[in-house]
């Protein structure tokens, strides 16, 4: 089995407030792993410790305790950074450069200046739909254009691991869809993607796993689909339901939703067998019986107590 792309083991980070003499515990024994090739969302309300965690794994700040490995190296190691594409939150650039010059600058910082640099950069700018603005200074870009450029620079060195802090922030719906498609295309190429986002419906569409933290503590980590299917209700679809049977069904605490050609009945898992047998016996034809999936947003709010997002 391949080593995880990211390993966070019992990481503790405490910020000291010099003048007040107080301490703020940003991360309390946070542990998680991100396997190679998976798209993992890092979720939490504002102030939960997401940016702190991402800064630690990029080597920008140091953890007080814990074991951290990124692509098998300590955070900040140039061997790891050579294989990482990073998009910080609210990406900032040298405003006096244009997109082409900025990407050339970043490419030189990777230590490479391939003969095909111009083609590579032109291709990336086309990929993020900035090829029509090559000559325009970044200072004149809109928020969405800056974000697209940030994504282009993250992809510059063909990284194995992408760390994206709010990749769709500032983008319009069409731009958000393009980024989602781009992430799915990168996933298909086998890249590992670790992203934070507040747009949970998007996370639900693109991610394999989620890690949820709140107030510096790990709340939940795991594969997304099984996590969403963990609800304690099932949905039974029948072809028809007589009024008498509907009364009996409702007596068992089920909810009934009638549609033109079918009837949906939602009930607690513990009741599913008895209810299904009752429906069969009552002359209803059971078309399907499925666990009810909650949305990521519902699950998130349940886990963090609706404190954020």
């Amino acid at each position: 089995m391949a080593a995880p792309a990211i390993e966070f083991g019992d990481v503790i980070k405490v910020y000291q407030r010099r003048f007040k003499g107080t301490q703020v515990r940003a991360l309390s024994s946070v542990s998680f792993e991100v396997a190679q090739g998976e798209v993992c969302a890092f979720l939490g309300p504002n102030g939960a410790g997401k940016t702190t965690s991402m800064s630690i794994l990029m080597g920008f700040i140091y953890a007080d305790q814990g074991r951290i490995r990124v692509l098998g190296h300590p955070p900040g190691d140039v061997r790891a950074k050579a294989r990482i594409g990073f998009l910080p939150e609210n990406f900032a650039f040298y405003r006096y450069l244009n997109a082409e010059k900025l990407l050339h600058f970043h490419l030189r910082l990777t230590g490479r200046q391939p003969a095909t640099a111009c083609t590579l950069i032109a291709g990336l700018l086309a990929k993020v739909q900035l090829d029509g603005y090559k000559g325009l200074k970044i200072g004149k870009y809109s928020r969405g254009m800056v974000q697209r450029l940030g994504i282009a620079q993250a992809l510059l060195a063909n990284p194995d691991l992408l760390v994206l802090d709010e990749p769709t922030s500032g983008l319009d719906p069409a731009g958000r869809k393009e980024v989602r498609d781009l992430i799915l295309a990168l996933k298909a190429e086998g890249k590992t993607i670790f992203l934070s986002s507040h747009i949970l419906s998007e996370v639900e569409q693109i991610c394999d796993r989620v890690i949820i933290i709140d107030r510096g503590r790990l709340v939940r980590a795991g594969a997304l689909q099984p996590m969403l299917a963990e609800g304690n209700r099932v949905e039974i679809i029948v072809d028809q339901l007589s009024p008498e049977l509907e009364e009996s069904v409702k007596d068992r605490g089920a909810s009934v939703q009638r549609e033109p050609d079918r009837v949906r009945i939602a009930v607690d898992t513990v009741q599913k067998r008895a209810l299904a047998e009752m429906l069969w016996a009552g002359g209803s034809d059971v078309i399907s019986l499925m666990p009810v999936k909650s949305s990521l947003e519902e699950m998130f709010l349940k886990l963090v107590g609706g404190s954020g997002e």
């Binding site: 950074k81 990073f86 900032a92 650039f93 910082l109």
Partner: peptide, 14 residues
Amino acid sequence: KSGTILAVMARPLR
């Protein structure tokens, strides 16, 4: 102050 250091230091730069 501008935050440009984050993008620069994310590169394989000591």
